[in-house]
Amino acid sequence: MTLAEITSRRLEKVLNQDKKDAPTQILAMLESDIRTLLQNYFAIEDISINLSVQNGKYILSTTLSATHLKTIGIVR
């Protein structure tokens, strides 16, 4: 294995760990923005947003119930 390959593997692990350790307020801010965005499209009754970092990837799971669509943009 070359030095470049060793560096690359170490970096991959370190960068993934850094993403996991990202300040929780950033994830909270993103959740808040997503909530606001969805409110533009749906008349939301109930919503659950869960944003996390797993294996270096952002995983977003959202469940919402809405009574109707809102009339903005192309959604009419």
């Binding site: 070359t2 470049a4 690359s8 970096l11 991959e12 960068l15």
Partner: peptide, 16 residues
């Protein structure tokens, strides 16, 4: 880069 002692530019782009 030629001897594999330095990480490739493409890999840096990929990682970041």
């Amino acid at each position: 880069l030629m001897t594999g002692d330095s990480i490739a530019v493409e890999r840096i782009i990929d990682l970041l």
